[in-house]
Lab assay of single mutants.
Amino acid sequence: RRRVRAILPYTKVPDTDEISFLKGDMFIVHNELEDGWMWVTNLRTDEQGLIVEDLVEEVG
């Protein structure tokens, strides 16, 4: 499975499927959606939700 790491922190918009995260958080990518969004699991918090790919980098 594809893994990505947050390069910046992010605070979710209330009442959306987004998740908040810290710089350095690792995610497993489940689905890549339109307009650069990804459905992921945050490995630190075990939370699932949407993040935008501009805020993460690939992990080898």
Rank of each mutant, 00 (worst) to 15 (best):
W39C: 08
I19F: 02
E34I: 12
G60A: 14
L8V: 14
E18F: 06
V52I: 13
D35H: 12
W39H: 05
D35N: 15
E47N: 05
T45L: 03
G24H: 07
Q48V: 12
A6M: 01
I51N: 00
E57L: 07
M26A: 06
E47M: 08
L43G: 03
V52N: 15
E53M: 15
L50I: 13
H30Y: 10
S20T: 08
D15N: 13
T16N: 04
L33M: 11
E32L: 11
E58V: 09
E32V: 13
L43S: 06
G24N: 07
Q48R: 11
E58I: 09
E32K: 12
N42D: 04
G49Y: 01
R2P: 07
M26N: 08
D46C: 15
G49M: 01
V40T: 04
T41Q: 09
L22C: 09
E58M: 07
W37S: 08
D54T: 15
E34W: 11
L55T: 05
I51D: 00
I51W: 01
L50S: 08
H30L: 15
W39R: 06
D54M: 11
L22N: 11
R44H: 05
D15W: 10
F27L: 05
V40D: 00
E53I: 14
D15Y: 12
T41V: 09
W39D: 03
D54K: 13
T16R: 05
E53V: 14
K12W: 03
A6V: 01
F27P: 00
L33N: 08
G24W: 07
I51F: 00
R3T: 13
L55I: 06
I19H: 01
T16D: 02
K12N: 05
T11V: 12
H30I: 13
T45Q: 02
I19K: 00
V13I: 13
Q48N: 10
P14E: 12
T41D: 02
L33Y: 13
K23E: 11
L50V: 09
E34V: 13
L33E: 08
I7R: 11
G36W: 03
I19P: 00
N31C: 15
G49K: 00
D54G: 13
L55E: 03
L43Q: 09
D54N: 12
K23R: 13
D25F: 03
E47H: 07
N31G: 11
V4F: 09
L55G: 05
W37I: 06
F27T: 00
G60H: 14
V52E: 12
I28N: 08
T45G: 03
V4M: 09
F21K: 00
V59E: 08
D15T: 07
V13Y: 09
D46R: 15
G36Q: 05
A6G: 04
Y10Q: 04
E57N: 06
D17M: 13
L8T: 10
Y10S: 04
R5F: 07
V40E: 00
T41S: 07
P9Q: 11
D35I: 06
V40L: 01
N42C: 10
D25T: 02
G36H: 08
L33Q: 10
N42S: 09
D25V: 02
G36S: 06
G49E: 01
E47A: 07
L43V: 11
L43C: 12
R3A: 07
P14S: 09
T16G: 05
L50E: 05
N31Y: 14
R2L: 07
K12L: 03
I7H: 06
D17R: 13
R44N: 06
G60C: 15
V40G: 04
W39V: 06
D25P: 00
L8M: 14
G60N: 13
P9G: 13
V4Q: 03
V29C: 02
T16Y: 02
I51T: 03
G60S: 14
D54S: 13
D54V: 10
I28F: 08
R2I: 06
E47C: 09
V4K: 05
P14F: 07
I19D: 00
D17A: 13
I7M: 09
G60D: 13
T41W: 08
R44D: 04
E57R: 08
E47Y: 04
A6P: 00
D25A: 02
D25I: 02
V29S: 02
K23I: 11
E53P: 10
R2G: 06
V40I: 02
M26F: 11
G60F: 14
L22S: 09
R2S: 06
M38G: 00
N31E: 15
F21C: 07
L33H: 10
G60L: 13
L33F: 13
Y10H: 09
R44T: 07
D54R: 14
K12S: 10
G60R: 12
I19S: 01
W39A: 03
V52D: 13
K12C: 10
N42H: 08
G24D: 09
N42R: 04
Q48T: 12
V52F: 15
L50M: 13
N31T: 13
N42T: 02
Q48A: 10
M26Y: 12
M38F: 09
G49S: 00
I51E: 00
D17W: 11
H30F: 09
R1K: 15
L50A: 10
F27Q: 00
T45M: 03
I19N: 01
N42Y: 02
L43M: 12
T45H: 02
R44E: 05
V4I: 06
V59D: 08
T11S: 11
V52W: 15
Y10D: 01
N42Q: 07
G24Q: 04
V4D: 00
W39N: 04
N31Q: 13
L43F: 06
K23G: 07
V13Q: 15
E57K: 06
D54A: 15
P9F: 07
W37R: 11
I19L: 13
I28H: 08
R44C: 08
Y10L: 03
D35A: 12
I28Q: 07
T11I: 13
E34P: 14
R1Y: 15
D15A: 10
T45R: 02
F27I: 03
W37L: 09
K23T: 11
K12I: 03
D25G: 00
L55F: 15
I28S: 08
R44K: 05
R5T: 07
K12P: 07
F27N: 00
L50D: 01
R44A: 06
D46P: 01
N31S: 15
G24I: 04
V40K: 00
G36P: 05
V59C: 13
V56C: 08
I7S: 06
L55Y: 15
I51C: 05
D35L: 11
S20I: 01
